[in-house]
Nucleic acid binder design. Sequence first.
DNA 1: AATGAATGAGCCTTCATTCAT
DNA 2: GATGAATGAAGGCTCATTCAT
Lengths: 216, 216, 216, 216
Amino acid sequence: MGRNLQAGGTRDRLLAAAAQVFASKGFRRATVREIVAAAGVNLNAVNYHFRDKQGLYHAVLEAGHKNVQEDDDLAVARDPGADPQARLHAFVMALLTRALSAEHRPHQARIMMLEMAEPTGALDVVVERHIRPRFELLVEIIAGIIPGPPDRQTLALCAESVVGQCVHLVHARPILSRILPFLTYSRADIERLAGHVTRFSLSALRNMCANGGGAA
Amino acid sequence: MGRNLQAGGTRDRLLAAAAQVFASKGFRRATVREIVAAAGVNLNAVNYHFRDKQGLYHAVLEAGHKNVQEDDDLAVARDPGADPQARLHAFVMALLTRALSAEHRPHQARIMMLEMAEPTGALDVVVERHIRPRFELLVEIIAGIIPGPPDRQTLALCAESVVGQCVHLVHARPILSRILPFLTYSRADIERLAGHVTRFSLSALRNMCANGGGAA
Amino acid sequence: MGRNLQAGGTRDRLLAAAAQVFASKGFRRATVREIVAAAGVNLNAVNYHFRDKQGLYHAVLEAGHKNVQEDDDLAVARDPGADPQARLHAFVMALLTRALSAEHRPHQARIMMLEMAEPTGALDVVVERHIRPRFELLVEIIAGIIPGPPDRQTLALCAESVVGQCVHLVHARPILSRILPFLTYSRADIERLAGHVTRFSLSALRNMCANGGGAA
Amino acid sequence: MGRNLQAGGTRDRLLAAAAQVFASKGFRRATVREIVAAAGVNLNAVNYHFRDKQGLYHAVLEAGHKNVQEDDDLAVARDPGADPQARLHAFVMALLTRALSAEHRPHQARIMMLEMAEPTGALDVVVERHIRPRFELLVEIIAGIIPGPPDRQTLALCAESVVGQCVHLVHARPILSRILPFLTYSRADIERLAGHVTRFSLSALRNMCANGGGAA
DNA sequence: AATGAATGAGCCTTCATTCAT
DNA sequence: GATGAATGAAGGCTCATTCAT
């Protein structure tokens, strides 16, 4: 008795549902049954299309995210001719928006966090396809801001300082909501946070070389 | 039949083993069987001493971390008379050392990360007992660095910018190891990272007000 | 590996075995493992077909008993045109036969007894679907026997006096076997018991009104 | 640290608590831990005083009930000179009161019911010490009511017809509460029920011989 | 492609009991 | 007599997977 009355192919519906469930529960806690129920497909569809649960997970990671070059949010950040500090702000804003705003369903971001907490072996593909390209873009932006010679290692650490501030705001959300009562993670809050991170980082970057080498 | 041939009390051995296992696998993935095996005690020891798996988990969180006031690593950071930038460096160093160095068994840090990824309801106690005190200390330190009037909200965001850099280095370790090949998380690396975070943050903090208000 | 070598459907075999085991041990003492062993099916068949142990139990209660309207044993008792005392005898005989005779597997009766001793929450459905219809039938029969105006409350109590005699013979069987050595619960015994209950009740009912009101 | 501050001996407190718990949950569902908690004694007291759970159970049954000869409720029923129908009423009233009224804590009655539902092997002692004596008393009373020659077998069946009506009112209480909404098992209800059972039985007994032999 | 059925591994928990002071 | 600790046996349940249409 075909219950699969919906239009879209089983495979796609499965991918979409899986992205949702994996993002909200992580690989382990997510159950195949919940996914197929959400997708409205038969239990064995995952077996048939993706071999097993892990296969489905990998497929989600592979297909889930747009390439950096195609990411509209990063348009300004990618523009070599734009003002470096505008590029930085665009980058930060894109990162936070994508991870925090409700409209952009923070699937990929959460999956990545969960993946770091409990690696399932799928980290490699995520790093190479999603993280590294963005990292390189950020390094390039920072190189345009930081004064003096572009020491690769310093650039990298500064880039991670920027990224760290952002992802912390995402990952530690349940904690920050307790510690910083004024934070509601509204759209306005996101912009305020992006503004802070950009300001903080710009201030730091512009003075890095002066302090270079000498510890605190 | 060897009834607890080992030395120490069953309860303590259980706590230690549980901290280890919970830290490496999280609450969910960790199995009672693995914990008791690691502790070398009977399966039901957890039942007897902690009622159930969750009771053991809470006990680990309660007993696991030293109070801020007793934390020797934070001695300099707590000293109101010390140089603010020395205090900041001490704070950062303590955070990274405790979370990253092998000697300090990074249990609590990882458990906290996992707790954020998959909350089990034990987050409240962790926040109030461990996180908030350290946060307040950091705010106090930063207030001594940042020029101008101590706007509470700005102070808080700056504090999280500092914390974010640190925890990112911890949480994203598997990613950073791929992206930043020079990072080995050796003792020397930890010091280098602490130096960078301190420098980056100091640079930022000293110029926050100047840039204050104007977004990127 | 012999995958269900037996004939009938797993589900039915499970229901039959469960009825047996639940009847002999009650819900609590009965173990899923024993039931599936008796049914010769896999341990998780109960999970698959009935969700869990309780689901199986409910299914046994639902499916176990025929509807009053379809119960051939009660044909005479249901016939409004039949002699009232013949109807009463038929009712009593049906009750005892079903509960005591070996051929009719006294499952349902025992389960009901156990359910009263240790309610599991399944009592409601049993009452509404099995007990109340039979009770109403009995009240109707008695109304045709008892002289005078049909006081609802008296009718109900008389009905329970009849039912009580019957179920006592069933429930207290292990005790009665000790107290009344002549009782073997053979087919002949059942008929003799039915005769006694009918006679005893008829005698009582025909004289209820005369004694009405005055206590002993 | 002696927590056993109470006066009474551990053993007695244990017996009392066990009677309570066994009565409300039956042998199986009752847990040793619950009993010792209710008694306020150490877990191993049951082991020490009664060897094990079953030993405690038997002790409860042995010590729990007064001898028939000492039972004040049955004083009238035991009086050979009293009016037979008064004796019958007294017997019925004693049975129902003891089993149903809140003041008389219906421990023994419930335990007996549970014992019938799930025999634990302790039934023999209960039958010989509690049931048989009362049964013989009832037979004697009935012999004084029923007209004609005292056929032992008929007497016995009639006695069980009386007992059956009573215990049914007790055992089926959860069902009767649903079927007979007017029943609240209040003190007044108990008297009303005793009146009905007595009336019903007297009517029956006085006419048994007339109908004797002829089935319905 | 899709579906119903079946299967096996593993996990947490409860409970009575025993051991050693 | 009493107490804390330890132990072994079961039991119910969840889950991913595989089989057979």
